[in-house]
């Protein structure tokens, strides 16, 4: 009895989290999986139609645009908010005024996605917008443009807005990681005459790996599921040119009320997310285990 209990004990720690996630997140997910094989408009009961939704997805001309945009978002997010977040965290760590810098980059995080979208729509406005006004004022009116209606400028412009919002979050997670790094190895290589870059590249960055893993994983997931900002700023337009898979899914589900079809897009999207973040996580966990 006691031994059984001791064996079960580690699972008891995990159980509460598993219960909450299972009941409130995984169960709805399973229901959506079921819906993806049906036709459903929320009013008449779901009708089973097999793989039709998935077949339709493959023949949809806009599917490729959404997929491309989704990957552009992924790459852009890994490059900008993650890269910048790491850069700022490393550079700003333990310098004078660090607190001020950190707060500045943190502010956008406290603003909701909807408000962020509104602010940036306004930054990008073609006539009264902040960006174009500045460009015209400094004699660069040739650079002024309709940021949200030109393709692919619109997607890049929104990634810039997202960078503004998310860099602070990544910076902070990196900072937490930097705090946990023991001082001794860093001091040791410095004494041996390593440059700042060498210290970072060969000592700090590898020690930062657990937090890098958090940041990259979250960024992968968030960027692949990117929805809020696009929906406020362009609604995926003009003519569906800035849609990501998540926006397409939302449009089918909550504008057209093709719930089954929307569910099939959600499933495809999740598979992409699981494949990418899963393989990244696995590779890292393996490395961790080896150490």
């Amino acid at each position: 009895m006691r031994r059984a209990l001791r064996k079960a004990a580690p699972y008891i720690y995990i159980l509460p989290a598993l219960f909450f996630v299972g009941a409130f997140l995984l169960a709805p997910m399973l229901y959506t999986f079921y819906l993806s094989f049906t036709q459903y408009d929320l009013m008449t009961p779901p009708r089973f139609i097999g793989l039709d939704n998935y077949r339709r997805l493959l023949t949809e001309p806009n599917f490729l645009t959404s997929l491309t945009n989704t990957f552009v978002w992924m790459l852009g997010t890994l490059l900008l908010p993650v890269g910048l977040g790491l850069f700022i965290a490393v550079v700003v760590d333990r310098v004078a005024l660090a607190g001020v810098f950190k707060s500045v980059f943190y502010i956008p995080l406290t603003i909701s996605a909807v408000a962020t979208g509104l602010i940036w729509t306004w930054m990008y406005g073609p006539d009264l917008g902040v960006l174009n006004t500045i460009l015209r004022a400094v004699g660069l009116s040739g650079w002024a443009r309709s940021w949200l209606t030109e393709v692919p400028t619109n997607t890049l412009a929104m990634i810039a807005a997202w960078t503004w919002k998310m860099t602070g979050q990544n910076m902070i997670i990196f900072l937490v990681g930097l705090q946990a790094i023991p001082k001794e190895p860093v001091e040791a290589v410095k004494l041996e005459g390593a440059t700042e870059w060498q210290t970072f590249r060969y000592v700090v960055f590898p020690l930062l790996r657990p937090m890098t893993m958090v940041v990259v994983t979250m960024s992968l997931i968030n960027s692949l599921n990117q929805f809020d900002l696009i929906y406020v700023m362009t609604q995926g337009g003009p003519y569906r040119s800035s849609e990501t898979l998540a926006v397409t899914m939302y449009r089918e589900s909550f504008t057209m009320f093709h719930m089954g079809y929307g569910a099939s897009i959600a499933i495809v999207l999740s598979i992409i997310v699981i494949l990418l973040s899963g393989s990244y996580l696995r590779a890292n966990l393996k490395q961790e285990g080896a150490q």
Partner: peptide
């Protein structure tokens, strides 16, 4: 992985 999978799914579908 099971706990973590709660984040991979697009939230709107919940």
């Amino acid at each position: 992985a099971l706990i973590f999978s709660g984040t991979v799914f697009p939230f709107q579908m919940y």
